[in-house]
Amino acid sequence: MHIILNGEQTVISSQSLHAMIVEKGFDPDTVIAEVNFQLIKKNDWEQTTLNEGDTVELLSFVGGG
C-alpha cells in the first residue's frame, strides 16, 4: 500500500498506524501522528487503519526558538 509519509510517497505493509510507525523505525514514544491532517491520539493508533493514499505526518519536538 502507498501512503504519503512526511511528504514522501512511501510503500508500507502495515495496516494500522501504530504498526506502520514501528515498521518504519520510528520511536512510538516520542512521535506525534496526524492522518489526513487529523491528530490521532496515541491511544487510538492501534485502532487507526491506514488506507491507500492516506497522508501521514509524524512530528516531534526539537530544539528551537
Binding site: 512526511n6 512530528l59 516531534s60 526539537v62 530544539g63
Partner: peptide, 10 residues
C-alpha cells in the same frame, strides 16, 4: 523554555 515542532527525522 521554547521548543519547536518538526517532521520526524528517521
Amino acid at each position: 523554555i521554547t521548543v519547536a515542532l518538526r517532521r520526524v527525522d528517521p
